[in-house]
Every structure is written in structure tokens, then in C-alpha cells.
């Protein structure tokens, strides 16, 4: 297969950046998108050019590192798949493919397709945990959890922190990510003591980072590789409002 690529190249955070055209040939349909970029990079290095920088690590859809906006979609055209789990058979021979970094004020570009997503870490640091020191735990079976709740919590906990939700959201909002963590812990008895403060602190940190506001468009849910649901955002809204209106 042959493709025309338009790839965002930007030397560093201060550089203006622009789309650069590349053509690549002899691509196997069973290659992953990242392997296709590997092949292109290999060519670039051999030609003495600067290879395209991109984030990746596990290449099996779980670490959340890979992050490309491909032909106008976060992680590309395939539903419920990360960039590393996208295969070239999803494209047609001769396609022109745009490759851009996540775009958000809170995710500044570091180089080419690599962005700084440390805002997510700071949001977790603001409250995405249960405050229990090592050794303080009681027996694991002392607190039963209804199976349905445990399953819902697991659904929310599946978030890989990739930021596709932010990238896809026309508002650059991070609510799907934040609500997934708030929901996971709100569904467990262990999460109750800090439920109110957690919701308030995490939302405040999210706002501070410069993410946009949710207007319930739903692009995040549609593009999330782990199919995190909008119901989590509703749960977060409920918790946040209850926490701030009712608690003293």
C-alpha cells in the first residue's frame, strides 16, 4: 500500500510548527500505524533527516502513551482502539492521512506529535486516590461490594489516561478522564470518606489546568479507546454539586 502523509512537525515548544508531506510505499496492511511510522522514521534517519517524534510504549493499547490525531480523529478512524492498535488495513491504498498531535492549551506540544500531559498527573495528585497508608488496611473481604457496583467501578477504572477525550472534545474538556476516576472511587465503600473533597479538589485542579468546559457533546465518549461512558460525567456533576452545595 502507498500513502500520502501530512505530519505535524514542530522542533520544540517554541517553534511554530507546520504540516510536512511524506509519501510512503510498500506498506503491509497488517502493520500497525506506529509500525508504519517506524518505517518512515527509518527512511528519514537513513536520509539524515530528523525522525518524527511520537509517544508510545506498550504498543498493546494499555499504557496510554500513544496519542495521534489521525485524519481528524483522536487515535484514528477505528472505534475503541488506541493509535498503537490501529492497523493499516483501516485505510485505503493511496489515502492521504493527516497526523497531528493532541491539541489543547493544557497539553502543550513538546516536539512533533509529543505533548505534555502532566496536567492529568496533577489532577490525580489533587484527589484521585484513597488516603490509606501502607499497612493501615483491614482484611480485603471485610467490606463487601455489590457486584454491579464493582463492575461499574471497573468500567470506569479502565481509563488509560491517554487524553483522547480532551483531544476530541471541541471544548478541550477533560471531564471524561476526571469523572472516570471520581466514579471509580465513588462506587466503592473505601472511597466514601473522601468522596466530597475528592470531587471538589479534582474539579478545581482540572479547571486550574486550563481545560475547557463540558457541553455534553459526547465526542469524548465516542473516541475513548476504553469506551468510558458519559454517565461518569453525570455522576461527577452530581457529586460535585452535592459536595459544594450541601457540605459545610
Amino acid at each position: 500500500m502507498k500513502f500520502n502523509l501530512k505530519v505535524w512537525r514542530q522542533k520544540n515548544a517554541k517553534d511554530q510548527g507546520k504540516l510536512v508531506d511524506y509519501t510512503i510505499d510498500n506498506i503491509n496492511a497488517d502493520m500497525s500505524f506506529l509500525e508504519m511510522v517506524d518505517v518512515l522514521n527509518d527512511e528519514l534517519v537513513r536520509k539524515g533527516e530528523d525522525p518524527i517524534a511520537f509517544d508510545h510504549d506498550c504498543r498493546e493499547g494499555i499504557c496510554g502513551m500513544c496519542s495521534m490525531y489521525i485524519s481528524g480523529r483522536a487515535h484514528g478512524p477505528q472505534h475503541a482502539a488506541t493509535t498503537c492498535q490501529l492497523y493499516m488495513r483501516s485505510f485505503k491504498d493511496g489515502d492521504t492521512i493527516y497526523v497531528e498531535p493532541w491539541r489543547a492549551k493544557a497539553f502543550p506540544v513538546i516536539k512533533d506529535l509529543v505533548t505534555d500531559r502532566s496536567a492529568f498527573d496533577r489532577i490525580i495528585a489533587a484527589g484521585g486516590f484513597v488516603s490509606v497508608n501502607t499497612g493501615q488496611a483491614q482484611d480485603a473481604n471485610a467490606l463487601p461490594v455489590e457486584k454491579a457496583d464493582a463492575e461499574k467501578a471497573m468500567d470506569a477504572a479502565a481509563c488509560i489516561g491517554c487524553g483522547a477525550c480532551v483531544a476530541a472534545c471541541p471544548n478541550g474538556a477533560a471531564m471524561l478522564f476526571v469523572s472516570a476516576k471520581i466514579s471509580q472511587l465513588a462506587l466503592f465503600p473505601q472511597g466514601q470518606p473522601e468522596r466530597n473533597t475528592r470531587a471538589i479538589n479534582m474539579v478545581n485542579q482540572m479547571d486550574e489546568e486550563g481545560f475547557g468546559n463540558c457541553t455534553n457533546i459526547g465526542a469524548c465518549e465516542a473516541e475513548c479507546p476504553k469506551e468510558i461512558k458519559l454517565t461518569n460525567i453525570a455522576r461527577m456533576n452530581r457529586d460535585y454539586l452535592a459536595a459544594s452545595l450541601i457540605s459545610e
Binding site: 490525531y69 481528524g72 491539541r103 489543547a104 492549551k105 471541541p170 471544548n171 486550563g210 475547557g212 465516542a222
Partner: peptide, 16 residues
């Protein structure tokens, strides 16, 4: 303001 640089190519209709 949350997205100062726009996408060159955006297929928003595919997701919303």
C-alpha cells in the same frame, strides 16, 4: 481558549 491551535483536519461529524 482551551484549544488555541486548531486541527488542520478535523472529522468532528464522525463522533458528534
Amino acid at each position: 481558549d482551551a484549544r488555541p491551535v486548531k486541527y488542520a483536519m478535523n472529522s468532528a461529524n464522525a463522533n458528534s
